[in-house]
Design a protein around this nucleic acid. Sequence first.
DNA 1: ATTGTGGCCTGCCCGC
DNA 2: TGCGGGCAGGCCACAA
Length: 263
Amino acid sequence: MPELPEVEAYRRLAEGALDRRVERAVIGDPRFVRGPTSPRHLRAALAGSWFGRARRHGKLLVLDMEGPGAGRSLGVRFGMTGRLLLDGRAGVEHLVYSSDRDVTAWDRFSVRFEDGGRLVVRDPRLLGGVELDPDESVLGPDALVVTAAELRRALEHSDVALKTRLMDQRRLAGVGNLIADEVLWRASLAPHRRSGSLTPAEHRRLHRHLRQTLDVLMARGGSHLGDLMPERVVGGRCPRDGTELVRSTVGGRTSWWCPLHQQ
DNA sequence: ATTGTGGCCTGCCCGC
DNA sequence: TGCGGGCAGGCCACAA
């Protein structure tokens, strides 16, 4: 599913859409337009402009506009099944929990450029969305570049479960359910640990594994390519020590973890 | 302010 | 073979 590694791949793909004048935007499903802006207003804001920059903040892709719409930006969220295509090419080939089928009915939003190319957001389940001028100030530091001090500030002084806090996009932006399980497994920390209970050594360990895990998953090409992922099934075993994994719900999310080495 | 919960959305998988 | 129930989780509205 689109967590930070996928959205980063989408961002790189979207760089191929820069400096190409928009002929028109096509709203495939009005429900996909989020925020206070109407679909009609969004179309008007995009027509004739072009994107000058493709940025990523956590799981949010931000396309800064130039030309008539200079100063505005288009935010794209991919939910758990969203895919980005540019001129028919996909940013990510495979998405777990989504469908890899080529169904144009799932094209919820697209931008047609004057050169004839298209940037398409394809999302079977409509869990993503596009928003004009998304509020980025509500997002925590990006997980890919978060410093140890920032991560500690995001986690300390809280009785909430560690995993819940890691996935709170206002505290730390970019970590979703699969990556949270993978990082905690690598860092030997139990998902239900109180967020504020980490020792300085555990803070350092978690920060190191967060950065390392994101690097590994981006190199492998997806958030679903972690070492723990194949074992996130009934009867799955810890790849490190062979212990049968426990499945529980933490913060309303399905969590798999090793009861032996994650504490 | 912070935290928890339920609902949205729909393709896909499994069991009958 | 077709059918229906359950499942997946990011995000948001809402409640406490």
